[in-house]
């Protein structure tokens, strides 16, 4: 598979076209806004976290490239039902996957389908696209309202 086909795997193209949980949550317990001033990607992430720290609901909306949008979409799928702690652990693993520090065949089995983002590691300029929504999610959990990545 060429590097570009590895980057734009069918699942990524599909999530870009039909993003899941692409909506707002009016009574969210945690929200944050993430943007990348260099490329203009801009997302809001909404979470409803229960008293036990479990993510009951998570959604996003905004504008960005296929990588950032698909990443946000698949993040919402995997995080629903997870605890805050699990969410942070997954972010750490996903970050390592995107930067090529984690081999999805050996480690990071928890990431499941998110392994399709391993191709991003060959495109250093696009790593920030893949991790933007994750940074935003983590900021929301930290009660930081606005974050920006470059």
């Amino acid at each position: 598979m060429s590097a570009i086909d590895e980057l734009y795997q069918e699942m990524i193209i599909e999530h870009n076209r039909n993003p899941r949980n692409f909506r707002t949550i009016d009574d969210a317990t945690h929200t944050a806004e993430g943007f990348n001033p260099i490329c203009g990607d801009h997302f809001h992430v909404y979470l409803t976290v229960d008293a036990e720290g479990r993510i009951e609901d998570i959604a996003f909306e905004g504008k960005g490239c296929a990588i950032s949008k698909a990443s946000a979409s698949m993040m919402t799928q995997i995080l629903k039902g997870k605890t805050e702690t699990e969410a942070r652990e997954l972010f750490d693993q996903f970050h390592k996957l995107a930067t090529g520090e984690l081999d999805p065949d050996q480690q990071g089995k928890d990431l499941g389908k998110l392994a399709v983002f391993s191709g991003v590691s060959k495109f250093p300029a696009r790593v920030k696209c893949a991790v933007l929504s994750w940074h935003t999610m983590s900021s929301a959990l930290d009660h930081v309202k606005v974050i920006s990545t470059e």
Partner: peptide, 26 residues
């Protein structure tokens, strides 16, 4: 409706260097 950064990455893999973004003119 393809984002410019996706266009830029695909062109780059073909050896075609362009700029994708707001070009410092938001």
């Amino acid at each position: 409706d393809v984002h410019a950064h996706d266009v830029g990455s695909i062109l780059d893999q073909d050896g075609v260097a362009i700029r994708a973004g707001h070009h410092c003119t938001q």
